[in-house]
Design a binder for these strands. Structure first.
Length: 254
DNA sequence: ATGGCTACGATCCGTAGA
């Protein structure tokens, strides 16, 4: 079983890339972020033709998340229970015996800003919720754009980024708190190439210079981590014309 | 030099992303 996550940065613009990639990569479950479209405009028919059913929680212009699967999606839930939020950042569903949580974490804009405080509050609520989800669902997979680079090796230029949003101490603590629940960063279960990233700035030829961050993750509960045989970053879609600034991350489960 | 792209929804520029 292949589980993947991809921040597509506009599903409308990236739909051709997505359908080509589904064909090439053959994932079983795909978590998408930054759809930037309302549910009424979700391309359900095109994705069904590609062999995927979908659950989505979209909004105009900003945010928006979806889960695609080759098999039916059950018990779909949106948002973090008890955390009031207009922004569509969270969707969960049961698929193939696993509980799958798809996340688009807040960006945070700048350390100390209102958006940064919102990011930390969002993470505090997320941690509480995922703790109870882990107790309820031993087979839990948490995928998405977490907008935190957890360690310096996940940052192309740690000196330049020091103290900035995405790498600040409180953000890294929030990430570690998820691992503290028992979730495993599946990418780090395996030998990986140095300077592996999942996002590159559109500006300054970020991709060509490999000036990136690793901010997209497949986190697995202990039971699923034990079944994980690989986790890879697929850079192919980032090389296309008009790419998303993020590229897919894929975990394989035996 | 705090910019540089890209998407969006509004106009021919502002907001947001990371």
């Amino acid at each position: 079983m292949k589980l993947a996550t991809w921040n597509v940065n506009s599903l409308k613009v990236r739909l051709p890339h997505l359908t080509d990639w589904l064909q090439a990569a053959q994932p079983d479950v795909v978590c998408l972020q930054e759809l930037k479209l309302e549910d009424a405009k979700f391309p359900r028919d095109e994705l069904a033709a590609a062999g995927y059913s979908a659950a989505c929680s979209g909004q105009k212009t900003y945010n928006g998340v979806a889960i695609l699967a080759r098999t039916p999606l059950d018990d779909v839930q949106t948002g973090i229970p008890g955390f009031e939020d207009e922004q569509r950042r969270v969707i969960a569903a049961t698929v193939g015996g696993a509980r799958v949580v798809c996340l688009y974490a807040p960006n945070g804009q700048a350390v100390g800003s209102d958006k940064y405080e919102y990011k930390l509050r969002w993470y505090a609520a997320l941690r509480e919720w995922l703790g109870s989800e882990l107790a309820r669902h031993p087979h839990l997979a948490v995928l998405g754009d977490l907008n935190i680079a957890p360690e310096d090796r996940d940052v192309h230029d740690p000196k330049a980024w020091e103290g900035q949003v995405h790498v600040s101490g409180p953000e890294r603590e929030a990430f570690r708190a998820l691992l503290g629940l028992g979730l495993k960063d599946s990418f780090r279960l395996f030998e990986q190439p140095e300077k592996s990233y999942s996002w590159w700035d559109y500006r300054m030829m970020g991709f060509r210079r490999n000036a990136g961050l690793r901010i997209d993750f497949v986190l697995l509960s202990p039971a699923l981590a034990a079944r994980c045989t690989a986790c890879t970053i697929d850079k192919a879609p980032r090389k296309l014309e008009r790419p998303s600034d993020h590229t897919p991350v894929i975990a394989e489960l035996a």
